[in-house]
């Protein structure tokens, strides 16, 4: 029960941090951390299939795609590209 509360609080904290940062690279890292804690929560809820999928797709592939898109366009939110 304590682990559930810690994991849910960490998910909300990293999601709020991902919105608040103006540097999009740090926001992408925060989204990857949120996916990792979410896969831990799925594992605690006894769904290992969904946990493996979330860790592979959410924390690795979508982060790679976001970083490639940031490299092609602009890094900061207010910057005109």
């Amino acid at each position: 029960m304590i682990l559930h509360i810690i994991a849910l609080a960490a998910i909300i904290a990293t999601a709020v941090l991902a919105i608040e940062f103006k540097d999009l690279l740090i926001s992408t890292a925060m989204l990857a951390a949120m996916s990792l804690v979410l896969s831990l929560e799925f594992y605690l809820l006894q769904a290992p299939d969904v946990a493996i999928t979330e860790a592979a797709v959410g924390a690795c592939l979508s982060t790679a795609i976001f970083i490639i898109a940031i490299k092609k366009t602009a890094r900061y939110e207010n910057e005109a590209c």
Partner: peptide
């Protein structure tokens, strides 16, 4: 390993394919 043991342990085609694709992305 995840693909080959898909009928015995948690996991399967989609999960193993996503892990292999993340290795290729790296």
């Amino acid at each position: 390993y995840i693909i080959a043991h898909g009928h015995l342990t948690p996991g399967g085609g989609f999960q193993g394919g996503a892990i292999i694709a993340s290795a290729f992305a790296l």
